[in-house]
Amino acid sequence: MRFALVVLLCAVVVAGCASTSNSSDETYHSIDVTMRNAGTTIGGTLTVPDQGGPFPAVVLVPGGGKQNRDEEFAQHKPFLVLADALSRAGYAVLRTDDRGVGATSGDKSESSYDDLASDVLAQIAFLRERSDIDPARIGVLGHSQGGALAPLVARKAPDNVAFVVLMAGPAQTGCEVLKHQMRVQLQAAGTTSADRLAAGDAAIHTECDLLRAGNFDEARKNARAANQQLPEAERAPDESIDKAINQEYASQSTYDPEPALRALRIPTLALFGTKDVQVDAKTNDPLMRTFLADNPRATVHTFEGANHLMQSAETGMPDEYARIETTMDPAVLDYLKNWLHANQ
């Protein structure tokens, strides 16, 4: 259940996103768009309300691994649902394919956090040139890994980012998040031994040191050894581990979000769920409040019973995601829309 490897996706009830629906606040239209970031072509979808404008805009940034513009998995499309809900509420929404997916070139697995942040900055620059977008009201909503990237983007371009929303974005370092996830996985497999749990922590700590030093070969060996600590049914094939140890994973595992979070002075919303087993709310909620304490326009909120995907959950474990009918708890969507309206 590694932070970089678990598919951070959610179930969707609707099959598509009507471009002219009239069942909610506003109608909107969808257009396919293309932009450039140096040698990378970025393809995505922009949804724009039909009446009024220029509109505030939200750039959606997905979780770890290679995601398409909808964060799609097994008929589940959380970014489609977010785009639909926010565009009905009067916001233009841009969602794009990750590097190496769909209409976007490059390879996300070989990309650093600076590379990925630069892609988001290119998307913001694209929106700022459009006459139907208000350039002073463009924000970034990041989920999971995207929730770590959003403050970094704002720190790199403070004059171009009006607000950030961090949905299950970590306040802990990537290494500490990995330690938590390893413990959850070991405990779910029946491990209660303090020594075995401590050994898992030590393996992750070593992994992070190796990745920080850029020693991917040794990191792969260490990860294979840690994999052997798991029950046989839970172990990943060595070739899967080797493939997973890449530049994106190294950036995610070694990233410390504290400096970028402490630098935020724009409206900031951080959302957690009590059933999230990937980014632990008990630890990350108070830590996030500490890092945002000097930002008078920051809000931190934890939803009771919500998992990493902001679904209403029973166990919160990843194997439950696809069994939950609702893509995102309606209470989360309502809270998000109310916060955006109050902070624009």
Rank of each mutant, 00 (worst) to 15 (best):
D115L: 00
Y113A: 13
K108Y: 10
S109I: 12
F126L: 08
E129G: 15
D119E: 05
G102N: 10
Y113H: 12
D119G: 08
V101C: 05
G106N: 04
D98F: 01
V120Q: 04
A103H: 13
T104I: 02
T104G: 10
D115K: 05
G100M: 05
V101A: 04
E129M: 10
A103S: 15
G106V: 11
L127Y: 10
R99Y: 00
S111C: 04
A117G: 09
A125T: 07
D114C: 05
A103Y: 14
D114L: 12
R99E: 07
A122D: 09
S112L: 06
S105G: 07
V120W: 01
L121N: 14
S112C: 03
A125G: 04
V120Y: 02
A103C: 09
E110I: 04
S111Y: 02
R99S: 08
I124Y: 02
D119R: 04
I124K: 04
D98H: 06
S111M: 10
E129P: 13
T104M: 12
R99K: 10
R128F: 03
S118F: 11
Y113S: 14
Y113W: 02
S112Y: 01
R99I: 02
R128W: 00
A117N: 08
I124P: 12
A117S: 08
L127P: 14
S112I: 03
A122C: 10
L121P: 09
Y113L: 15
R128L: 10
S105Y: 03
A125E: 12
A122W: 00
S118L: 03
Q123E: 15
D114Q: 14
I124T: 08
D107P: 11
D115V: 02
S109G: 14
D114V: 08
I124V: 14
G102R: 01
R128C: 06
S111F: 04
G102E: 15
G100K: 08
D98A: 00
T104Y: 15
D114T: 13
S111E: 07
D107H: 09
E110M: 06
D98C: 03
D115A: 00
L121M: 11
L121E: 13
R99A: 02
Y113R: 15
R99N: 00
D119T: 08
L127M: 12
A103D: 15
D107Q: 14
Q123W: 09
V120D: 13
T104Q: 15
D114S: 09
A117E: 08
F126D: 14
K108W: 02
D119C: 05
E110N: 13
A122H: 00
T104H: 14
G100L: 06
V101S: 05
S118R: 13
D98P: 03
D119K: 11
A122G: 03
R99H: 03
Y113N: 15
G100E: 01
L116T: 00
G106S: 11
S112R: 09
T104W: 11
D98K: 01
G102T: 11
L116C: 05
